[in-house]
Amino acid sequence: MNGNSRGGSGGTRVLVLNSGSSSVKYQLLEMAGGAGDRLASGIVERIGEVPEIPDHSAALKQVADELAAQGLGLDSPELAAVGHRVVHGGTRFTEPTLITDEVVAAIERLVPLAPLHNPANITGIKVARALRPDLPQVAVFDTAFHATIPDYAARYAIDTATADAHGVRRYGFHGTSHAYVSRATARLLGKEPAEVNTIVLHLGNGASASAVEGGVCVDTSMGLTPLEGLVMGTRSGDLDPAVIFHLSRVGGMTTDEIDTLLNKRSGLLGLCGDNDMREIGRRMDEGDTAAQLAFDIYIHRLRKYVGAYTAVLGRVDAIAFTAGVGENSAAVRQAALRGLGSLGIEVDAVRNAVRGSSARLISAPGGRVAVAVVPTDEELEIATEAYALVST
């Protein structure tokens, strides 16, 4: 691919690839008329662990074979583009970007900011470009939606020269989810995104909050890395930075050991031994005090961010829960917003208890702030952004 080609075949389909270190998730979507119909989806796992899938090249070939078996092969003229999820775009990539050799090199230079994610994303890009060098390929960055955060919210209060030299600032993550959910919430309310101020709560094993003012992100809980912010499944979220020095000086822990502790052995798992909210709920019902405390800490942090972002936005029109926990745990939603009636935030217990797969309101009738459950669709967001770029 020469880096200058755009969708010229008249194709209306986008293949979305999410390449992880040991897996490749894919979805093929039909974008004609903005439909976003899902034609195929799947995941290739255990890359490098089993003989038949030794590397990402073999994994992408398996994806191609699975699509071809359904009559949806990569050689189809109806394919307009491949959209790639890329975790970190730094300050350079703030919108969907047509992939060129120069872009790949720039993403590689960002690896120190996302050493666990960007390398796998890059591998997926390189393999996909090799399979279809003639096809436009688009990078969609997790950090891009948060690029609009003003400097006073994005910068940390450390020496400016040091921060600039090492790229230390708030980048935020889960951006495709926050973008999709904030717009979907506006649609649910029958309004344009520019008319709505929304607090989005993306609560999965990884969790983040964002303050979205008129469709534009003005603050988010994750920072330089996905470690900052809410209590997560295995990540600590916010803590005193001096904890790290203390563990090093007093506990004798190495940097790598502390990194592992905070990212993989903290959060709900570190507090009670479980990072599955369903299991924690079951244990709470049985009177397990460790599970109860973990839940209470999780909720306390969540409520603090709701309050903080209410202050940041000044006027909140909606609060949207999304991702695995946000979409499925009525107990988390109820507890997180309990007692906030003075802010115009009230959850209707009956509405909240109803399960469903579509966007829905769970706020009390007449409440000043709409409370919604909005299933996220990051693949559709990536496809939408990629198709918009190559079809112009």
Rank of each mutant, 00 (worst) to 15 (best):
residue 11 G to E: 11
residue 12 T to V: 10
residue 13 R to N: 03
residue 14 V to E: 12
residue 14 V to L: 07
residue 32 A to K: 13
residue 32 A to T: 06
residue 33 G to Y: 03
residue 34 G to P: 02
residue 34 G to M: 04
residue 38 R to F: 00
residue 39 L to M: 06
residue 52 E to F: 00
residue 54 P to C: 07
residue 60 L to G: 15
residue 62 Q to K: 08
residue 62 Q to Y: 01
residue 67 L to H: 11
residue 68 A to N: 14
residue 69 A to L: 05
residue 77 P to K: 10
residue 86 V to D: 11
residue 87 V to I: 14
residue 88 H to E: 08
residue 88 H to T: 04
residue 96 P to K: 04
residue 97 T to M: 04
residue 98 L to M: 05
residue 102 E to G: 15
residue 110 L to R: 09
residue 110 L to F: 00
residue 115 P to F: 03
residue 117 H to R: 06
residue 118 N to W: 04
residue 120 A to C: 15
residue 122 I to A: 08
residue 123 T to L: 13
residue 131 L to W: 06
residue 132 R to P: 09
residue 141 F to R: 01
residue 143 T to V: 09
residue 143 T to E: 11
residue 143 T to P: 07
residue 145 F to M: 07
residue 146 H to R: 11
residue 148 T to N: 11
residue 150 P to Q: 10
residue 152 Y to P: 04
residue 155 R to E: 14
residue 156 Y to H: 03
residue 159 D to N: 14
residue 162 T to S: 12
residue 165 A to K: 09
residue 166 H to Y: 13
residue 167 G to D: 12
residue 169 R to I: 09
residue 170 R to E: 07
residue 176 T to S: 07
residue 178 H to I: 04
residue 180 Y to M: 09
residue 181 V to D: 03
residue 182 S to W: 02
residue 185 T to L: 12
residue 193 P to Y: 00
residue 195 E to A: 13
residue 198 T to V: 15
residue 200 V to K: 02
residue 206 G to W: 00
residue 207 A to Y: 02
residue 213 E to M: 12
residue 216 V to P: 15
residue 217 C to H: 01
residue 217 C to G: 10
residue 217 C to I: 01
residue 219 D to H: 12
residue 221 S to N: 09
residue 221 S to L: 02
residue 225 T to R: 09
residue 227 L to P: 01
residue 229 G to P: 02
residue 232 M to L: 13
residue 233 G to R: 06
residue 239 L to E: 04
residue 239 L to T: 12
residue 245 F to I: 10
residue 246 H to E: 11
residue 249 R to M: 04
residue 249 R to T: 13
residue 252 G to W: 02
residue 254 T to P: 10
residue 258 I to K: 01
residue 262 L to P: 03
residue 270 G to Y: 11
residue 271 L to F: 03
residue 273 G to H: 04
residue 275 N to M: 00
residue 277 M to N: 00
residue 278 R to Y: 14
residue 279 E to W: 00
residue 282 R to I: 00
residue 285 D to H: 14
residue 286 E to K: 15
residue 287 G to C: 10
residue 292 Q to D: 05
residue 293 L to M: 11
residue 295 F to Y: 13
residue 300 H to I: 00
residue 305 Y to K: 07
residue 306 V to L: 12
residue 309 Y to D: 08
residue 312 V to E: 06
residue 317 D to I: 07
residue 318 A to M: 02
residue 321 F to W: 02
residue 328 N to K: 15
residue 333 R to C: 10
residue 335 A to T: 07
residue 335 A to W: 02
residue 336 A to E: 09
residue 340 L to E: 05
residue 342 S to N: 04
residue 343 L to A: 15
residue 347 V to A: 06
residue 348 D to A: 03
residue 348 D to W: 08
residue 350 V to N: 13
residue 355 R to Q: 15
residue 361 L to N: 02
residue 362 I to N: 04
residue 364 A to I: 04
residue 367 G to Q: 06
residue 367 G to S: 15
residue 373 V to M: 04
residue 373 V to R: 01
residue 374 V to N: 06
residue 383 A to L: 10
residue 386 A to T: 14
residue 386 A to P: 05
residue 386 A to K: 04
residue 389 L to D: 13
